[in-house]
Design a protein around this nucleic acid. Structure first.
Lengths: 315, 315
DNA sequence: ACCATTTACGTAAGCACTTACGTAATATAT
DNA sequence: ATATATTACGTAAGTGCTTACGTAAATGGT
């Protein structure tokens, strides 16, 4: 029973590694059986030097796709075998220019028939599968170039996290949570101002009764975030008092709360949502921008010291 | 410019490695971004323990395809995190049985949604290529199982070596080579006997004039092997005095020389070829067997001390 | 029952790289 | 012109395995 095979897509990396090892080990075995004093890992380097002539260490590294310490190692080893030699760049004394010696060139040339045979063997294998393997690989590489596994997965994970968050409307039992969550982040980044104390101590009077709403985010039976929609006038609501607890951050909770506020404003037939924030809160500003908020000039002094600018969203 | 891609089939191993690394690194990055205290390399082990329960170190190693020291490492690391625990086998005190702890189980379970998302991302990639990648890989694996790159290449290389060897018939200028090559190997494995001296010193009188022939193998303008067809009677020729110089061994020269002798006997309308050899010369005996020679009882004492048995080929 | 062989596991060393970091030479900005 | 940044390279240390080897426990043949 082949576990890696059984696991399917989830172990694709391991399966490809196993396949790659099989190819590379076989090639190594071929060299050994032919008693050729040439290490397979030198191949890319030698091939490059043979076709493109002398190069510096870093040029070689980036050309053949190894780190430069690896190239230093290869060059040192091959120098011992007198397959490569150094020469001066002439301009830049930091550079260690490397080229093949005559011995190196002729060894590489003598390798050609064997390489051709390896190539033919690989082609034979590929032909036997009936697929154009190189083209398949290229397609996979292209798909990954377009968007890698990391980003594809992250997108799905974010969606899951958003789905897991429940948004609740205000109820008296949640009053203390509103205060706790806001105090938590205010103390961390700024300080609790007079206006904060007023609103956070009595949201019913300060927000709800004036036609606004307070939303809460619940994740696995815990209240992890909150946000208020404060009515400015029939046409405008302010998004304010957003706070998400530390350990739940990065789970799209802010986004969901903001969307709740926007939805609330929309249901009240308002035409815009405003907010005040601070440049320091980069993550928050990014979120607002992703939702369509634009910076607007400060029309009048804010009630809060921490405010550095305003944003607006047209509905 | 992508050198690995340019190289095509010859760098297929490296290309697959690069692709595999890309998958595996992305997965590792995903775990890290989710701040999960779980190493991707533990996955196979954990998955096995979760599905199949407690196992010993060696069982785990063979099941998940790592070496046992690797499993020891994983288990020690996971034990530190209290993800696995040990228990006694009861019968065998050498065994260190391992199973997941409750913490390990629940961590693995909590990982499932993420794994599903990774799997879906991989599936998405594969779908985008339009190929059934897993099936393509399986086809390649099957082709390799049938005959690996090493053996496919070796077959081609042997053919090339055979093609590169020229077989020459006796001419007086080659007389010394016949002696030199035979002395070389006689001294290495046995000793030069009276009968050897007689034949090697005057092949014209001892072989050619009696209706036999001496063949030589020339490789890149160097005589690297020799072999004689000694006429026993009209019906029988003896394959004898085969010698291939050390550094040219493994290049199918013996085979080609033997075929020359067999061909010579055939052209003389003989019905069998015999030879005398020694069990110690395993490579030579294998060659003779591959050509169809069978062991036969010694009908009479050999002229050579080194002979331990005879072989015969019916034409 | 006894000794040789095999098995299970741990440890050490090796491998083929990588990342991290330090130093000297060169390029760039003021 | 001089300070600062950047680049080229070497070295050290780390990584994620492997192979090689040693020891203790179990097994098997006589």
């Amino acid at each position: 029973m082949d576990i890696i095979k059984e696991l399917g897509e989830i172990a694709l990396g391991s399966r490809l590694k196993r396949l790659s090892d099989r190819f590379m080990q076989d090639v190594s075995k071929i060299y050994k059986s032919q008693k050729i004093s040439f290490e397979p890992r030198w191949f890319a380097l030698t091939n490059y030097l043979y076709n493109y002539g002398g190069s510096s260490i870093l040029d070689l590294a980036s050309s053949i796709g190894f780190s430069h310490p690896a190239v230093v190692q290869f060059v040192n080893q091959m120098e011992k075998e007198k397959l490569v030699e150094e020469f001066d760049d002439g301009n830049d004394r930091r550079k260690r220019m490397v080229r093949l010696t005559e011995k190196g060139k002729s060894l590489f040339e003598s390798l050609q028939p064997l390489l051709k045979e390896i190539e033919d063997s690989v082609k034979e294998i590929i032909q036997a599968t009936g697929y154009d393997l190189l083209h398949v690989i290229e397609s996979v590489e292209n798909a990954l170039d377009e968007k890698d596994i990391y980003n594809r997965t992250l997108k799905r994970t974010k969606q899951r996290h958003m789905d897991a968050v429940e948004i609740l409307r205000y109820s008296p039992v949640l009053k203390e949570q509103f205060k706790r969550l806001n105090y938590e982040w205010l103390k961390k980044y700024f300080k609790v101002e007079k206006e904060d104390e007023k609103i956070l101590s009595d949201p019913e009077k300060e927000i709800i009764d004036k036609g606004g709403e307070v939303f809460f985010a619940r994740l696995e039976n815990e209240i992890v975030g909150t946000c208020a929609a404060i009515k400015i006038n029939d046409d405008t609501y302010e998004l304010a008092k957003m706070a998400v607890t530390e350990k739940a951050q990065g789970r799209q909770i802010g986004k969901k709360l903001a969307l709740a506020v926007i939805g609330f404003a929309y249901s009240k037939k308002a035409s815009k949502v405003t907010l005040e924030t601070n440049r320091r809160l980069q993550a928050a500003v990014n979120l607002y921008e992703s939702l369509g908020f634009k910076s607007v000039p400060m029309d009048k002094e804010s009630k809060y010291e921490r405010t550095t600018f305003k944003m607006k969203l047209e509905l």
